[in-house]
Design a protein around this nucleic acid. Sequence first.
RNA 1: GUCCCCUUCGUCUAGAGGCCUAGGACACUGGGUUUUCAUCCCAGUAACAGGGGUUCGACUCCCCUAGGGGACGCCA
Length: 501
Amino acid sequence: MTVRTRVAPSPTGEPHVGTAYVALFNWVFARQYGGQFILRIEDTDRERSDSASEAMIIEALRWAGIDWDEGPDREGPCGPYRQSERGAVYRRHVRDLIDGGNAFYCFCGPDRLDALRRAQRERGETSRYDGLCAGLDPEVSASRVEAGEPHVVRMRVPPDGVCRFEDRLRGTIEIPWSQVDMQVLLKSDGFPTYHLAVVVDDHLMGITHVLRGDDWINSMPKHALLYRHFGWDMPEHAHLPLLRNPDRSKLSKRKNPTSLHYFRDVGYLPEALLNYLGLMGWSMPDEREVFGIDEMVAEFDLDRVSTGGPVFDLEKLNWLNGQYIRNLTPDQFADRVGQWTLNRDRLAQLVPLIQSRTERFIDIAPQVDYLLGERRELSADLFDHRTLTAEDCKRVLHHALAMMATVRPWDSGALMGECRALAGAMDIRLRDFLFPLFVAVSGRAAALPLFDSMAFLGPDLTRTRLRSALAALGGISKKATKRLDKDFAALARGSRDRANN
RNA sequence: GUCCCCUUCGUCUAGAGGCCUAGGACACUGGGUUUUCAUCCCAGUAACAGGGGUUCGACUCCCCUAGGGGACGCCA
């Protein structure tokens, strides 16, 4: 049996470094056994998925140096490799589950489910569906579906006992069935949920080893049950430790740069990034720390992966990257810098901003210093303003940060629209609203056009600078953060309502 | 709250019962090389979460406690 692994990202925004991490381990494992590695796009959430994100994932993984044998851009025997194009496959399998009595139609709406969950949580229980529609006569359900009533399909779950399954890294794990929800398999829009799609696709695509983040451990019973219902053998599962923020919570863009674009744009070499990711939860038998991906393939041992979640530490990555940079020949160095940001495409983004402001080329560097280099360290006095207090600045920065968590696409126009709306909602003149952002982004009160600057820097680097600006202003206490979050939510709600009217 | 997972220096880790006076790397500190800086070299600070077992012997095995994390969505 040849080894087949996969990585299955969701195209819902910037390409995440965690995707590269999981992809690396899957890739290395497959290569080591001379097997295949597959890229599958899990775009069943049609609200959040878009093709631009998919393109970014493909491009970013390629940049990182990871390739795949089959994928949406590289057809193979098990395609299509985009879940949104596999609807018929899922519906067929759901049909089988229903016919076999292992799944049922559910007509419960969000209001009832909300109330149910709230009540269960108040009673201190794990919230889960209560099975109301599980008892419906199949004939009756079928006719309601026939009549066009909105519905989902849920899986049946054993009423008691425990689910026992194997994790390659942790051994046997047991989870009581009482904790497992009657998971929705088919949403009311006809698309499958992750749980159904992942099982069907992993089986149909011949996946032999599933290496994925350990946040999936709790859903193993659902998956194990589906394999059983379908009568399929389960692939081997190994749950990799989750990358962490310095505070040990799961790595998130709210607290840290996570986009592969960030790593590319600030000048990490992809081979250094992969090397660093290879050090997360794994180590060479001889403890060598600087190694290429081919060396990793040669020495990799899945059973030496550790289970404690590693903190993603930029400092060690910086050191490693320095090692790689110093090992470049002068020619290579020049080439790599050229590929980085001193290339035509990247420079072209700058031209509209700087040309009108340039009399001699020597004027260019000082204008773009904060775009091509680290912006200067900030001190609180840089935020002195004739009308805004330091507290006002913090509020603006906090709300801008909150807004940036969801703006898409990340471009000048969208940022401007959001900032205008936010300034309006906060009842602050746009020019004043922009002041703390200019300082945060550029280190100066006046710089190249702000939204273009942000667009050039990208979301992670921009957010990193806003966070550091907030810190320079003394930071925000936990309590104040809570208050500001509330404040922002209220403003956002207000402007949404206005937009709808 | 319920369930699940995890727990060696600040961080990444080595360690699969005696090789551990717990090793390496990053960071930090000190020293050296260097016209500055950086690189480079040398040295130093720093950890087995706590408590019970098992054993002649426990960082390594078992149990409990504590701490951390995750899941609990018609998101993945």
